[in-house]
C-alpha cells in the first residue's frame, strides 16, 4: 500500500524533518507512527497527503509514485484518502451533517446521495442524534468522531490520523482508537501518528518509532 525508499525531507540550513526513511505499510494494515515532538511523524503524513514534497527519495502509494503526479492526479489520489487531525478541522458554521456531506458535495456527488451517505457514516460513529448540532456544541470526543465520519464518507482506502487523540482524555482516546480499529477491520489501511505510548500499548498494533527524522525502532 505504502512504500518509501530513502525518503528525506529537509528545510533550509540542513534541518532534516525526515532522513533516509524506507518503510512499507501493507494493504489493510494498522500502523502507529510514534516518537517525540519533531520526530517527523506529521511530516511523513503531510508527504503522504502531498501537502509537502519530499527533498529526496520516493513514495509509492498503491503503486503510484507521488512525486510524479500531476495536479489533476493529486486531486484523484486524495479522493482515496481520509484524514483526521488533532484539531478536528471542522467548519464551525456548518452543522454536523453538513460538515460530513460537505465532502461529497465538493466532489460533485449528486445531492440525494450526499446526505444519505453522510447520515450512514454519522450513524456508524454513533452521532446521528447530533446531526443538527454545530461543532462547537459538541465535546472533543464527539468532534473527533465527526471528523472520522467525514474522513470515511468517501470510502477511503487509506486513513491518515495525525495525533487524533491529542486533545482528548484517556477514556475518549481509547474510544477513538477503537473506532479507528473498526475502520481498519473494514479493510481500510490506517496510519496513526501519536506520541501516546500507553494508547499504543493498549491497542497493540505494529509501531514505527521515529526520532530526529530517522526510524529508530520497528515493533
Amino acid at each position: 500500500m505504502i512504500e518509501t525508499h530513502h525518503l528525506s525531507k529537509f528545510y533550509s540550513r540542513g534541518l532534516y524533518a525526515l532522513r533516509d526513511l524506507s518503510l512499507t505499510v501493507r494493504k489493510g494494515e494498522f500502523v502507529f507512527l510514534t516518537g517525540p515532538s519533531g520526530a517527523g511523524k506529521s511530516t511523513f503524513l503531510r508527504l503522504l497527503l502531498i501537502q509537502e514534497r519530499q527533498s529526496e527519495g520516493e513514495i509509492f502509494v498503491n503503486g503510484s509514485n507521488l512525486s510524479k503526479l500531476s495536479r489533476r492526479e493529486i486531486q484523484e489520489y486524495r479522493r482515496g484518502i481520509g484524514f483526521v487531525f488533532q484539531d478536528f478541522k471542522l467548519i464551525p458554521t456548518r452543522t454536523v451533517l453538513e460538515n460530513i456531506s460537505f465532502v461529497p458535495q465538493v466532489l460533485g456527488v449528486p445531492p440525494s446521495q450526499q446526505r444519505r451517505r453522510a447520515f450512514q457514516v454519522l450513524k456508524w460513529v454513533g452521532l446521528q442524534h447530533r446531526m443538527n448540532a454545530y461543532p462547537l456544541d459538541l465535546s472533543g470526543g464527539e468532534q473527533q468522531r465527526v471528523a472520522i465520519a467525514r474522513a470515511l464518507v468517501s470510502d477511503p482506502v487509506l486513513l491518515l490520523a495525525d495525533e487524533p487523540t491529542g486533545n482528548l482524555d484517556p477514556d475518549l482516546s481509547l474510544e477513538i482508537m477503537n473506532l479507528l480499529r473498526e475502520v481498519n477491520a473494514g479493510g481500510t489501511t490506517v496510519v496513526v501518528a501519536t506520541h501516546d505510548r500507553e494508547l499504543i500499548r493498549l491497542v497493540g498494533r505494529r509501531t514505527v518509532t521515529l526520532d530526529g527524522g530517522r526510524v529508530v525502532e520497528l515493533a
Binding site: 495536479r71 486531486q75 486524495r78 478541522k89 467548519i91 460537505f102 465532502v103 466532489l107 460533485g108 468517501s154
Partner: peptide, 17 residues
Amino acid sequence: RDEIEIMQLVGSPIAFI
C-alpha cells in the same frame, strides 16, 4: 480558509474551489 483547506485535502476539483 478552513473550508478551502479541507476541499484541497479531499481532492475537490479546482473548479469547485
